[in-house]
Nucleic acid binder design. Sequence first.
DNA 1: CCAGACGTTGTT
DNA 2: GTCTGG
DNA 3: CCAGACGTTGTT
DNA 4: GTCTGG
Length: 222
Amino acid sequence: MCGRFVMTHPPDALARIFDAQPDNDLPEGPNYNVCPTVQVHAVTNADGTRRLQSLRWGFVTFWAKALNDGPLLINARAETIVEKPTFRDAAKKRRCVIPASGFYEWTKDAEGNRLPWFIHPPDDAPLAFAGIWQVWDKGEAPVTTCAIVTCAANDTMGRIHHRMPVILDGKDVARWLGETDDPAAPLMRPAPEDSLGMYRVDPAVNSNRASGPGLIAPLDTA
DNA sequence: CCAGACGTTGTT
DNA sequence: GTCTGG
DNA sequence: CCAGACGTTGTT
DNA sequence: GTCTGG
């Protein structure tokens, strides 16, 4: 799955790469420890214009009476996203792209300790996570929330985890955002085997308070 | 009809 | 064990 | 996602 | 709000 990631690209670089109009309240980076419930960058296209927005990571279902009414939905399963009442409207009409410079996954050792891995793209370009978003308007102020779509792991990722985020190829971003006539559903598939690298990092990142580039330094596991 | 779930992950 | 916070 | 709190009474 | 279970 995907429950923690890295964003080191500045907002203006993201706006340029994704050809989107940036909002003026975007998180400034770099952030080597992007956690659920924080504001993240998202590329949306609700009305014909591509925007780079700041959205709260942790999807709130439309019937929720409070922000914490139910578990935090940081992911949505690709296999069922178009059927589940919680997700289907957003999957149909409010898809977004959540950029990431890389992300973390965890394995466990024999003692049950959590061992973090950093998974990264082959170059300096950000990954494009497939996401969905929705405005939750039952509280004092509206909150716009989002979730990252997950799918089965490919063989590479399968070495450490059985799920992975849906990562869009650059040429498929427009299609995912609904800017073309092609259906978006076929894009919800595991990334190609050679498209990601991974290595162990220091368990310091296990804490949501940790920060800094040291979190993605390769761990010497020899 | 009403009451209660609805969602994810991992773990059992 | 379960919930909250980040 | 992981880490850390979680509860009462009375006393300091 | 909408669907399922009873």
